[in-house]
Design a protein around this nucleic acid. Structure first.
Lengths: 114, 114
DNA sequence: TAAGACTGAAACGCATCCGTAACGATTTTG
DNA sequence: CAAAATCGTTACGGATGCGTTTCAGTCTTA
């Protein structure tokens, strides 16, 4: 991006995307949940609960519960690490990818009208 | 903006700003709350509860409660409409303006690193 | 192999959010 | 001026999120 977004532009972008989310009938995730979801999909695996908790600087139960709720929505999946069965590996799903694709399109469309 | 954000860029922007919010110690507002706040500050007054509810396509109690919580944080203020005392006019505050200014800076800074 | 460390999950208590349905206060209408 | 309409709020019941603490399962190490 050549020039960073000016204040009004940045806020308009934020407003438009958030408004679309509110209008849409998708389940709206919490701030932490979206951040977790994005981390899983943007950074290279493996993703463990502990790593995610450290990256976001939140407690492990926050991650566990976020995976519970997003798991119900099939946005992410869990799998035991067979090499070290204490670990749980968080994995991507088709629905999760679609969810983020839709989000990216929303952002892209809003940024176009700046 | 010359070219709209590509998928990866859009998601990185969203991730970075959300992560900063999670890391920060500010009260994190819900999706609806931020949208309401942004609407109040970006569109011309007056703002009534009914108008806001209609714009966001949510019920009036959602607006009332959002104003309750954001009012406690002094992000917005309420005032009776003396012309029609049934109405409540939602008003901006210094803290609210600062809050959004910080948010805009966050977005601007993240967009710079694309 | 027994003691300790580590990992994710469950339990508990608290706070907050939501939608629907009611309710008082105020204004408009007939 | 009484009846209806409008506005924002409150009350209710249910769902969800959070932090801290505790726990069971698994690995490491001494």
């Amino acid at each position: 991006m050549a020039t960073p977004l000016a204040t009004a532009q940045a806020l308009k972008l934020w407003h438009d995307v958030n408004l679309a989310q509110v209008h849409g009938d998708e389940a709206d995730l919490s701030l932490r949940q979206v951040t977790i979801l994005l981390t899983i999909y943007m950074e290279a695996p493996p993703h463990t609960i502990r790593d995610l908790a450290k990256k976001l600087n939140v407690s492990k139960p926050v991650i566990t519960r976020a995976l519970d709720s997003m798991g119900k929505l099939e946005l992410v999946a869990r799998r035991r690490d067979e090499a070290d069965r204490r670990n749980v590996l968080v994995q991507r799903t088709v629905k999760g990818a679609l969810y983020l694709d839709r989000l990216a399109n929303l952002i892209g469309a809003s940024s176009k009208s700046l």
